[in-house]
Design a protein around this nucleic acid. Sequence first.
DNA 1: GTCTATATTTCGATAGAC
DNA 2: GTCTATCGAAATATAGAC
Lengths: 192, 192
Amino acid sequence: MRERILDVSLELFNEQGYDKTSLREIAERLGVTKAALYYHFERKEDILLELHLRMHALGADALRELNELDTAQARADAWPRVLDAFIDQLFANADLLLLHARNQNAFRAIGDDERHHAANEDIQEQAARLLANREIPAAQRVRLACSLGAILAAIGLHGGPLADIPQAELIEHVRVAIRDLLTPDGKDHTAA
Amino acid sequence: MRERILDVSLELFNEQGYDKTSLREIAERLGVTKAALYYHFERKEDILLELHLRMHALGADALRELNELDTAQARADAWPRVLDAFIDQLFANADLLLLHARNQNAFRAIGDDERHHAANEDIQEQAARLLANREIPAAQRVRLACSLGAILAAIGLHGGPLADIPQAELIEHVRVAIRDLLTPDGKDHTAA
DNA sequence: GTCTATATTTCGATAGAC
DNA sequence: GTCTATCGAAATATAGAC
């Protein structure tokens, strides 16, 4: 049941947003009453928190690999490879990603919560630390940031204007595009 | 006064999100009462709508230029140039962009509103139409989508992990990166 | 585990004086 | 144009029976 609540909540949060989704709606779609939800989750925030932890688990492995590398340059160099493997995983969990992209504000409010900062290292914090690392050339840091945004945009727009493109094909396009983005090619951009 | 309300609202919406920002807070920060706001805006939604119209105005010119081109291929070809000029404008209005990125749900709710669809063509719809155009090769459409996401990410992260990079430098990095992203370079990605 | 009922709070919005 | 005061709705959350 706890699982069904999380599934339905994720659906509704993505459709209408966290704030505009009431517990009554979640309960209705589940065929139960509002009060029943409180048996499984103490507060509404806890539902969102649990969904957040799932995304945290998603990237934990990949980012751990990055952090085990010694030098900052080595981490930057490894990024393309890690990112490439990452893309599949991100697309496979598009709904979790969209939840975060579309409800940044709601998650920020949770950030001040106890358990969030307490227990485990957040994936977002790890990514932020990498992007903030001044030992990496600024140009490369910007490209890293752009690559994340690019992937997220592709996933988000796959439900919209890019809906006609089969996912497998879309992923391949993204993969190649990201590789172009992350590998400066010294092309003459000043044109003729 | 109407201007001050919009300024403060934009601030608060970006800090806490549209839904979690109450009219009471906006009024408090302005040193007036809630009721005073209702003299300038009939509904809370209207504040958000007005902010939306400002972003619409932002891109209207650039996108009009695109739509005046005849063939779909011509529009795709012109995109890099338009986008390049666009980037400056987007960075100059970062707060408006972040508002939209961080409150997608709130804006979607407004989309069903009367005046929004009635009067003018929305910039987002125009961009969506371009991205959905099947006359453009899928690979290129994906790259267009990615470029938008990349720019947005750079702007969003400039307030965070990339804060130490001067804006002028950041913009230049983005400009070059986007150019790499939009021009497939036939590099051998299969590596050695 | 789920229910009915209700407490509590907060918000958007209105009425009318100044 | 701004105020005080209040309405009505909706949401989170709780209490206690089954």
